[in-house]
């Protein structure tokens, strides 16, 4: 797995470079995708900058959006209740919107119940709050295994749960997307909302991890 970083000047970005690894060696299917895109532009079916604009709006989404929602729920019990009752209207209070005809539900992890989310049929994921799903979320291994041996999968992610905590796997098989609301870590009583948000990892909002401990975050 490459951890390759690229520096792109602003000029290059504005000329339509999506900002990923430059295409050097492309597979047949990758080339086929580019060929279709070029044809659609030539035929006037899509505009020349449609793709680039869409890339930029997708890149603007990241797990920090979901983390803001979680941190707000930690400090504001009334907001947390609204989030659990109707997540779509609650996130709208923070300025987030969601794909039309898609639902959003927040599920709270407690001392008795731990939620972990999967899409066994494809890769459904609350991208508007978490950005694009990680590779492992889309992997055949995760999709196969987390429903039948969730505790073994969680253990691989470093999460060993006591047997008195029920594991509830959520398979998002329809148009409802799920956000896990992890429990607030101990020792964070005095922390401000913005600092708390830094503790909220992407994996904790999928349910394969817990929020960071406060001593791991410099203040």
């Amino acid at each position: 797995m490459s951890e390759h970083q690229h520096d792109h000047g602003a000029g290059e970005e504005s000329q339509g470079h999506p900002g990923g690894t430059p295409d050097i060696q492309l597979s047949y299917r990758a080339k086929r995708s580019l060929a279709m895109q070029e044809l659609l532009v030539e035929k006037g079916i899509i505009a020349p900058d449609d793709i680039q604009r869409s890339v930029e709006s997708a890149r603007a989404r990241s797990p920090s959006d979901g983390a803001r929602v979680v941190a707000r729920a930690w400090v504001d019990p009334a907001f947390k209740q609204r989030l659990l009752d109707n997540a779509l209207t609650a996130i709208a209070e923070l300025g987030y919107d969601f794909v039309a005809d898609t639902g959003l539900v927040a599920l709270e992890n407690t001392d008795e119940l731990h939620h972990v989310v999967v899409c066994t049929l494809c890769s459904c994921y609350p991208g508007a709050l978490l950005g694009p799903p990680p590779d492992w979320y889309k992997s055949l291994a995760y999709r196969s295994r987390v429903v039948i041996e969730p505790r073994a999968v969680l253990r691989e992610f470093g999460l060993e749960l006591e047997s008195d905590i029920g594991v509830r796997v959520i398979d998002s098989t329809a148009e409802i997307r799920y956000l896990v609301l992890p429990g607030r870590p101990a020792g964070t009583e005095g922390m401000a909302e913005e600092q708390l948000a830094e503790l909220v990892t992407r994996n904790s909002m999928i349910g394969v991890g817990l929020p960071l401990s406060p001593e791991l975050v410099t203040t």
């Binding site: 969730p150 594991v167 959520i170 409802i176």
Partner: peptide
């Protein structure tokens, strides 16, 4: 769901 499931009885799955 799974005959071979070995986890605690309070483990569950939800699907839509």
């Amino acid at each position: 769901l799974w005959e071979s499931y070995r986890g605690p009885a309070n483990d569950r799955i939800c699907a839509d």
